[in-house]
Design a protein around this nucleic acid. Structure first.
Length: 491
RNA sequence: CGGGGUGUGGCGCAGUUGGCUAGCGUACUUGCAUGGGGUGCAAGGGGUCGGAAGUUCGAGUCUUCUCACCCCGACCA
């Protein structure tokens, strides 16, 4: 157990913060609300990027890059969009500084005021649709399937490392289609990409659903989402995919000629996931001993620690273990051989454990005699002794086991913490105590949704996609309802 | 923006009714021993107390102003 590390059961959010810091993932920067992503945290993000990027390309998308700055007037073209983002935009008003005539330092040069202010993108729909107008003339130009890896800024009032920062890294896909059906299919397809990624790579089970009108993305016709359940019973929106209808095409006048020589507005989608996923990953699997990473996203999958008293002993160990390391690497496994003499073995054990390395091998003189080594798995914190000649296959299999074990544990947790509730008292009781997902009837009005939020802080996370229809009564108002929706408190 | 809090070696903190050379843990450096779960002992380096002004013989400590950050709410991926 790490020294001075808060337990989840004592204070979950403190546990989270300490974990991020102590596992060297990120730290607060000199800029309010903005984090420094440290190498270990960033390499997890890179693993995520690599997997997602491949999935995007495999579904026909290409990458491009649009400007960080957006003319202020662009934002207001789409009414709902500006309303949603106006309150959290950073604004560029000047382009030059000058020395302070009254003292030290520099001041904003009042003569360098911009004709039109620029905003730092909170999302890129507007600049991209303004550009798409020039790119799209004919049905032959469609579909346009573009993704961008970028940073965005949303001036949030309260921030938390990875979960909500003023600047964050993400990808945003922006696609244009000839038909409503095609755009809707795209939005759903990318939602599936996200859920596949979450489950197969992050080992995080997610629920796919559609947002209610009040939770919808500013400017979207329909917002789809994946929702995960964190270990403290709160839900986390892990990704969104929006069907934008023709809203942005109309706002930016993006039309195309159909085969029938008709002018029509194009149909759009946008979809994104962010560095918030790193936060989701942490909160899904990690424990009171630190970070736990699923092998598929672990920058180091196997740490090898020699135990030696002197140079000669290390050499004997290295001779034996390096061929094994090479065999593991040949299988595409990332291995770190930590033969530093500057840290003690016990120190290293704790280090890799806290940083979430899935598998640890330890080899010492004892193992050389027995022709064995010690294999420890991070997810279960168990150790075994394995014969040298069996260990390569064993490790390969173990990584797969850990990946699926993590998923199954998380799924089991979610299953146990998803309940159907039929009365208001039960609902309130559940929200206040256990948390988790609550499946309950809702009368479908924004007023009721808002009132439930006011009274319990619970929001409708989504209406699950394959939701069965079922007659019932709204838990708050008793009005008739056709289906259950999913409530939770959320991040 | 409302409420609360904190600024003192890299990090985490103590510092009493103003008083003498500003202290502790940890981290760091060196040496010796140690080496299968954050090793022990010893020695050593490093701060002028967020900033400004004031009161005083004397300010980390009191006063005023100011800046920054953190936590709780409203807002949000």
């Amino acid at each position: 157990m790490a020294k001075n590390f808060t337990k989840r059961s004592d204070n979950y959010s403190q546990w989270y913060n300490e974990l991020v810091i102590k596992a060297d993932l990120a730290e607060n920067s000199a800029v309010r609300g903005c984090m420094v992503i440290k190498p270990h945290g960033y390499s997890i993000w890179e693993k995520m990027q690599a997997a997602l990027d491949k999935m995007f390309k495999d579904t026909g998308h290409v990458n491009a890059y649009f400007p960080l700055f957006i003319p202020k007037s662009f934002l207001s073209r789409e009414a709902a969009h500006v309303e949603g983002f106006a309150k959290e935009c950073a604004v560029i008003t000047h382009y030059r500084l000058k020395s302070d005539p009254n003292g030290k330092g520099v001041i904003v040069d009042p003569d360098a005021k911009l004709e039109e202010e620029l905003i730092v993108r909170p999302t890129s729909e507007t600049i991209i649709w303004d550009t798409y107008r020039k790119w799209i003339q004919s049905y032959r130009d469609l579909p346009l399937l573009i993704n961008q890896w970028a940073n965005v800024v949303r001036w949030e009032m309260r921030t938390r490392l990875f979960l909500r920062t003023a600047e964050f890294l993400w990808q945003e896909g922006h696609t244009a289609h000839a038909t409503e059906k095609e755009a809707m299919e795209e939005a759903r397809r990318m939602l599936d990409v996200y859920s596949t990624f979450a489950e197969e790579y992050m080992a995080m089970p997610v629920l796919k659903g559609v947002k209610t009108a009040s939770e919808r993305f500013a400017g979207a016709v329909e917002t789809f989402c994946i929702e995960g359940l964190m270990q403290d019973g709160k839900a986390l929106q892990a990704g969104t995919s929006h069907f934008l209808g023709q809203n942005f095409a109309k706002a930016f006048d993006v039309k195309f000629l159909t085969k029938e020589n008709q002018q029509e507005y194009v149909w759009a989608t946008s979809w994104g996931v962010s560095t918030r996923l790193v936060g989701a990953l942490i909160m899904t699997h990690s424990d009171d001993h630190g970070l736990v990473l699923p092998p598929k996203l672990a920058p180091i999958q196997v740490a090898v620690i020699p135990i030696f008293k002197n140079e000669e002993e290390l050499q004997r160990i290295s001779e034996k273990i390096i061929p094994i390391i090479n065999a593991l690497k040949a299988k595409g496994i990332s291995v770190k051989y930590d033969d530093r003499d500057t840290q003690k073995p016990g120190w290293k054990f704790n280090e890799y454990e806290f940083k979430g390395v899935p598998v640890r091998l330890a080899v010492g003189p004892r193992d050389l005699e027995n022709n064995s080594l010690e294999i420890a798995r991070r997810d279960e914190l168990t150790k075994e002794t394995i014969d040298f000649d069996k260990c390569v296959d064993y490790v390969e299999q173990l990584l797969e086991d850990i990946q699926s074990n993590l998923y199954n544990k998380a799924l089991d947790y979610r299953t146990k913490n998803t309940v159907e509730v039929n009365t208001w008292d039960e609902f309130v009781q559940r929200i206040e105590n256990e948390g988790g997902f609550i499946s309950a009837h809702w009368d479908g009005t924004a007023e009721t949704e808002e009132k439930i939020k006011q009274e319990t802080k619970a929001t409708i996370r989504c209406i699950p996609l394959d939701n069965p229809l079922e007659d019932g009564k709204c838990i708050l108002t008793g009005n008739p309802s056709k289906q259950r929706v999913l409530f939770a408190r959320s991040y």
